[in-house]
């Protein structure tokens, strides 16, 4: 981005995402579907995330202070409203919600980062460049989902006492204190498979690569794939659920379960949740 380039093509540097058929001619647009009726809240995905992405175990004292680094967290709610009676019996079970970075197409975090450390990649990921991050935490402040995690400490100093550090995934950097991090859709896996595909002169096939959480999930509640490929399972579910990436309000049949969280904030998330189903007659 030279100055001349900036002056000449300034319109192309404006964030104008998303728009209709934005990824029509693109090779990749990574997206996800989480079926809340299949999700049991078992935490297998979160542990997989710790293993894959070198997430530090912060310990009880730091967890208490709110310094946990779980990129993916399972939330458990007891109700939709603002209050419940004290003798409420959760007779319809609990409400589990796996929540991680929604890889928004118009991400509130991206516009506010002063140094452009978080920005959108060509394949539709909301990336975080650790080397560039200065740690203003504005992105976290502006994230409606609060799924960004800051390195409050130099976790590498204590989170992996020898020889636990041998478990660290060499494809993922261990973050230093003072930088922001978050779910990357396992970008290291995506990168590897895209490189392999490129070597073979093809595109990544559906199912060839998946995120650690999706791979672990015992109920296969998480589907991950390339939305730009209409044959991929993810694209099929998005289409079937009548979710359009570029819309902030979906016009879909009543009995379709797909929705995106906080669409009204016009963040255009890349994660579609499928509504939890309960047999109300039971």
């Amino acid at each position: 981005m030279s100055l001349n380039n900036l002056i000449k093509n300034w319109t192309s540097f404006r964030a104008r995402r998303p728009y209709l058929d934005q990824y029509k001619n693109a090779d990749y647009k990574w997206a996800m579907v989480i079926d809340l009726d299949a999700c049991t809240g078992c935490n297998a995905c979160t542990t997989a995330c710790y293993a894959e992405n070198n997430l530090p175990v912060v310990g009880k004292e730091r967890f208490e202070k709110g310094h946990a680094m779980h990129w993916m967290r399972i939330e458990r709610y007891w109700g939709e409203g603002e209050s419940v009676p004290v003798d409420m019996v959760p007779d319809k079970g609990a409400q589990f919600l796996p929540m991680m970075c929604q890889q928004c197409e118009a991400a509130p975090c991206e516009v506010v980062c002063p140094v452009g450390a978080t920005h959108h990649s060509a394949d539709g990921l909301n990336t975080q460049v650790y080397n560039r991050c200065v740690g203003s935490r504005y992105c976290s402040a502006n994230c409606p989902y609060k799924v960004r995690y800051f390195n409050w400490w130099q976790y590498a100093d204590f989170a992996w006492p020898n020889p636990l550090e041998l478990q660290l995934n060499p494809d993922v950097s261990v973050r230093s204190k003072g930088v922001m991090e978050k779910c990357t859709f396992c970008v290291q896996r995506l990168r590897e498979s895209m490189d392999h595909a490129k070597t073979d002169g093809r595109l990544v096939r559906d199912g060839e690569v998946t995120t650690a959480c999706a791979q672990a999930c015992p109920t296969s509640a998480i589907t991950f794939g390339n939305l730009a490929n209409p044959q991929s399972q993810v694209a099929k579910v998005w289409k079937n659920q009548q979710i359009a990436l570029e819309k902030d309000e979906q016009k879909k049949d009543e009995n379709m379960r797909g929705y995106r969280i906080f669409e009204e904030f016009r963040t255009y998330p890349s994660v579609v949740y499928l509504e939890r189903v309960r047999d109300l007659e039971a």
């Binding site: 202070k65 709110g66 402040a141 800051f150 409050w152 204190k177």
Partner: peptide, 11 residues
């Protein structure tokens, strides 16, 4: 030590 000493946290 990092900003953790300030007891800042998420959120």
């Amino acid at each position: 030590n990092g900003l953790g000493v300030a007891d800042l946290n998420n959120p």
